[in-house]
Every structure is written in C-alpha cells, then in structure tokens.
Amino acid sequence: MDQPNHPGEIERLMRLAESGLDVSSRIPELDDLCRDARDHFGTRIAAVTMLTRDLQILKARAGTEIEAVPRHLAFCNVTILSEKVMVVADTLEDPRFRDHPMVTGEPFVRFYAGAPLVYSPDLVLGAFCLTDGKPRTFSLGDRAELTAYAEAAVSILVESLDRPAAVGGRAP
C-alpha cells in the first residue's frame, strides 16, 4: 500500500522530534490499557502505534509481539489523516486494503479500527488501533469508546513526558 500523502507529514515529524516523546520505550500503563481495550472490544489485537519517518512502532500492544512495521505498510497512515476514528469493517471489501500484504498474508487482518493519538492540533502521534482476523461491525458507541482509549493513551504519554522533566528540572 502506498503511504498516503500527508500534507503536513514533514512538519509532523519535526513536531514529533521536538516533543521529546520516546517512541520506542515501553510504558507498562499503556500495555495495560491495550489489554483492557482488547478485552473490552473482544478483538485479537490492540496496540498504541507511533509513526516515525520509516517505521510504525507498536509502543504498546496486546495480542501480538510485533514491535514495528515498515511505515508504508501501516494501516494507521490513513488514520492519522483525520481526527475521526477510521474503521475498516472488512478489509477484503475495502479496495484500499484488500491487496495489503498483512491482509493477504500473516496476520490476515480482516478488521481494523483506529483512533488518532492527537497530541496537539499539529501533531498526531499515531493511533490507538484494534485488529481482528474476522470482519465485524463497529458501532457509534464503539467508536466513542475507542476515541476515549486514544485520549487516555495520549494522557499517559504526556505524563511520561512530564515525569523525567519534573525530576531533572527542579533544583534540589
């Protein structure tokens, strides 16, 4: 799949670098959040992804051990283009994804739902996403709850940013 042309992608990558967020280190609370979301929605995988220039990094995850995916293969590329939840009820029915290597091959993704991680108006970090091996519907309530999960993930990320700064910033 071609990477969608994000109009502000270069600026987004600059903002991501400026934000001081560590894209790869694990945060236990985020993993807990992913497990909670997976149980709540009953999907196979729940993950918090962050999109760098070349990679989609699964910063937190439940139901998979994949740590990163080449950026051009990331479903979340489409999710970060909007502030709304993106849902692909059945990847085989969606011309954008039906020939995607992760649909035609392992892990045979048939369902995807992603809510953008909006850090600031000009910085979408990645997405809080769910995938499953079976097609399924995703109601308005599901969308609202997934958005809430994404917001909770951003709050955890922001807190992780504040923590070392607070310790190092104050004179003893």
Partner: peptide, 20 residues
C-alpha cells in the same frame, strides 16, 4: 434498543470527556 444502548455509550464517553 441496540441503537439506544449505543447512544448511551456515546453519552457516557462524552460525559467522561467533559469531566476530564
């Protein structure tokens, strides 16, 4: 009933966000 239940879930999330 499913639609009403779904709307309730949206209302709850809205309330959660409003509170936050």
């Amino acid at each position: 009933l499913l639609a009403m239940n779904d709307a309730l879930r949206v209302f709850r999330i809205n309330a959660v966000r409003r509170e936050r």
